[in-house]
């Protein structure tokens, strides 16, 4: 463990091109996919919680099932879709960062939507009453809902972001862990482990946690300022 920590510090202060490429691909993939999942998942969650129509319960159950979608299954699905003989072969998304982001968004959106639905179901009655009392339009009522769930929004986002950072099954299948292109921190850890370099793998793991810590501190500061 000691050697791994030392190596993590050495790595951090080294000018290694491959390491910084891995870090930047990781950031690009996790930030894009978690923001996209938030933009898709939050309206979906608000829709689940606030609207009333037949089949709503079934939809929520379906969403909860998708929340447990195993990443490798999602990866396999995307691999088959984007594959050279797959139906979406013209998009040429296999072994690209965009393809990895698509897989991540498929995994994260139900999680974001489900978390929002759970949170909102507790306060939806009051919001509806307020909206009725103030005679708010649909759009304004939506904004009010978001305003009432700021704290839940940040924590939901962080949860999604954490999942995106930790994910390895789907991204290794869709991305292929190609050096200088689609190799992210988790797949690089797998690669170095397979080469017998446990120390370097562990050092990358320490860096991964450190990045997560920085993101969480930033989010906490934002959350504190608004609340």
């Amino acid at each position: 463990m000691g050697t791994a920590l030392k190596k993590a510090f050495e790595l951090l202060f080294s000018n290694d091109g491959q390491l910084w490429n891995i870090v930047s691909v990781t950031m690009q993939m996790t930030l894009t996919s978690s923001v996209a999942a938030l933009l898709l998942g939050v309206p979906l969650g608000v829709f689940y919680a606030t609207s009333r129509f037949p089949g709503r319960k079934a939809l929520i159950i379906l969403n909860r099932t998708l929340m447990g979608l195993p990443p490798v299954v999602c990866g396999l699905l995307c691999y088959m879709l984007f594959s050279g003989v797959g139906p979406l072969r013209q998009l040429k998304l296999l072994f690209t960062v965009t393809g990895m982001i698509v897989a991540q968004v498929i995994l994260l959106t139900p999680i974001v939507a489900g978390n929002m639905e759970t949170y909102l179901s507790g306060i939806v009655g009051e919001i509806r009453e307020t909206a009725r009392g103030l005679r708010l339009t649909r759009g304004k009522a939506f904004l009010l809902t978001l305003n009432e769930s700021k704290y839940a929004l940040v924590s939901t986002y962080l949860f999604g972001y954490g999942r995106a950072m930790a994910e390895v099954g789907a991204v290794s299948m869709v991305g292929g862990a190609i050096a200088y292109k689609t190799n992210v921190m988790t797949t690089a850890i797998m690669m170095y482990t397979n080469m017998g370099d446990f120390t370097l793998g562990l050092a990358l793991g320490v860096l991964l946690l450190a990045i997560s810590l920085i993101v969480n501190i930033t989010a906490h500061l934002l959350q504190g300022r608004r609340a």
Binding site: M1, G2, T3, L5, K6, A8, F9, L213, I217, H220, L221, Q223, G224, R225, A227
Partner: peptide
């Protein structure tokens, strides 16, 4: 409230890094 939490977090980070350095030195 948030400042308190931040201080705790930073203190943790500091302890973590000191621990890391000390640990690696003993290993060396």
């Amino acid at each position: 409230m948030s400042k308190k939490a931040l201080v705790i977090l930073l203190a943790l980070a500091l302890v973590f890094s000191i621990f890391g350095c000390a640990q690696s030195e003993t290993t060396t």
